[in-house]
Design a protein around this nucleic acid. Structure first.
Lengths: 221, 221, 221, 221
DNA sequence: TATGAATGAGGGTTCATTCAT
DNA sequence: CATGAATGAACCCTCATTCAT
């Protein structure tokens, strides 16, 4: 069943500059952490997959915790960069949101292990990792919030959204996107664009209604 | 560091009927699994917190895997029951949805460890556990889907929602609700009703627009 | 694979006189010890197969070691009794030996677990058990020795067998018989009489030659 | 009680090449398995006697089962090699048999733990081990059979031994030899040559009679 | 007579980590 | 730069045995 293939454990590894070796190791680590989770991953498997000996991993990356942190940082940075790169700053806000979502779904689909590290595993490994991934989430939430505010100004001039309301909305939005990412990645026939469009359909008109001052009420007219 | 306080490890545990001991053990297990995750949880800590010796845990619950499965089943059943109990079947669909969401947010807020087991940990522990929570999730998704369909019929007669579209929407909705649960539980000042209302505001009008045939489009008019 | 079927673990066991309960337990113990060996056998399985609770086993048989000892004693006594019963004291010595062998092969074939306890397991469980089964072996060896001596007197008047020589012969004889028992029991088409006849063919003429003073020599004529 | 003296458990073990450490470990394992049996032996004791930590044993030998199998293989190979080395191929068949027996008794006397592993313990540890020793036993039986056949041709031209008869004889012979080995090893005053001679006296003339067509019969003339 | 409830002790196995070369 | 050799600590699990009814 799902297994990580063995690395090239052929004798002595060729000498390489440190930066590249570190990249190899982090690559391997992301794969193993992504497939197994933090606790279930073993440094043995990581070193083996990277094609180096365990002491070298410790020499460069210091400890399992540090290695995992490095994975989180790298994958988070890559995801944020991908989203940023996918957005044209001069486009209208809704278009920017759609582009960002598309980039998000594309990137997570192409880097499932990295996404698993961020989404599934970093949140179950205890405080230090949660904080690490929280930083990225905040960055994305803030980006989305900016877009929503921009859209609100574009379309309505005076958005009647309280700050607390926005916070909840952002959580819901990001959570919905994350769930959709899982769904889209599990079914290869779902493209990133399709997922992004579903999100827009789901969220955009709701946001619009909110900005128009409409609220759902449990008291019927 | 988050820690579970030690149980009464004083001498021999008082004799109790099996059913009650089993409940104690499962209680402890939910707490430890919820705080640490499946792999990081130790049977020693669970036994200690339950105030019994490890062999008794094994005698009654058989293995770590079985114990975790038992936790998942119990917490899933409790959550589903809470949601069902919170809904008045004769209310309008949107009201039912709001009631269900309120019950959902209430229950997860009152049972954070159980919710962590279901939401965070069961999904990272490998196939058997994923299947176990999947069943619950399906049950909830199906419940939500029914409500949406009912609302669509009530309000629009002829919902133009393709099946694939509904699948994506359900994922997004449930994902949003789960994310909101995390947010609401982290901030005690957010009540379950507030979270439910946020969800309704976010989702209900969007669903309405969809049912009216409106779609977001990346081509501007 | 080889497994011991579960006993009647139906609720509370009926009250029985102690002697019979002890027999049930020893029966079960012989079966489990025979199949698994001393260390691998578990008191749980024995109690279960006997259809009683574990404390009762301890109440009657005291400990695992005592229980195993009781098994050895019982099976050894049964085997010796079977061999004695199979021999007519007024027959010629060779006939007596054949009858004894036949009884031996019959009994071991009919009680494979008991035989396994004596032959395979009692000898690997450390000093106390070895001594126990050694007593039986000595008894049989002494019986055989008597027969050989009788035969020698019958046929030759003056047996030229040194005592040490007899000791080695007896070991070889009994070892051969034990090995044949394993062979015969493994193949159901081999009857006890056939095995006994093989033994006689193998051993009797050799003994005869010895008693006639013939010896094998490594110096060729 | 028979005990294995503690190894040098002082601090960190000196660095040694893997092959040598493996040999040390297997040596220790043979001793402990030989004295205690498979189940009763503990990896702790083996590691301690080998003067290394338990993880190293697992790193090199993989598991208790694999370690036991390695012991069986090594001791079986050594025994077979010793017997082969003791036999001059150009000697007459009976002389060859005597030489083989002498080598057999010598080797088992010098390696009592190895012999205990093969004879006593490998046969009670379940299928995998039984198969492993079975191979060796077959090799020896086949060797002996060849010798008997050769002797038969040398002396009698036309041996009238049915195949089934030979099978039984081989079992008896090997069983007798094994029993004699136990007897000889228990009494240090019995030399290997003496044991071998006893076997020849016991078996050779009997075989000769058989090949001459004589059979024991339970019907007296 | 008989048992359900409970445990101390130990066994096999794995893992993150370090030392010495 | 890179590794083979080595381990302390912990974990899951089982077992013989006892206590209280």
């Amino acid at each position: 069943m799902g297994g990580v293939k063995a690395g090239q454990q052929s004798g002595r590894a060729k000498r390489l500059p440190r930066a590249e070796r570190e990249r190899q190791m982090t690559d391997a680590a992301v794969r193993v952490f992504g497939e197994r989770g933090y606790r279930a991953a073993s440094m043995d498997e990581i070193a083996d997959l990277a094609g180096v000996s365990k002491p070298l991993v410790y020499l460069y990356l210091n400890s399992k915790e540090d290695l995992f942190t490095a994975c989180i940082r790298r994958e988070a940075a890559a995801l944020v960069a991908a989203v940023r790169a996918g957005v044209r700053a001069d486009a209208p806000a809704d278009r920017q949101l759609w582009e960002g979502l598309t980039a998000f779904f594309s990137h997570t689909a192409e880097h499932p292990d990295g996404w698993a590290v961020l989404h599934s595993h970093a949140r179950t490994g205890g405080e230090p990792f949660v904080a690490e991934v929280g930083a990225m989430r905040d960055e994305i939430v803030s980006f989305v919030t900016t877009l929503i505010a921009a859209a609100a100004r574009e379309a309505h001039g005076d958005p009647e959204l309280a700050e607390r309301e926005v916070a909840g909305l952002a959580q819901a939005l990001v959570g919905a996107a994350e769930a959709l990412a899982g769904w889209a990645n599990a079914d290869p026939s779902v493209s990133a664009k399709e997922a992004a469009t579903t999100m827009m359909n789901f969220a955009w008109s709701g946001l619009g209604s909110l900005m128009d001052g409409q609220r759902w009420s449990d008291r019927r007219p």
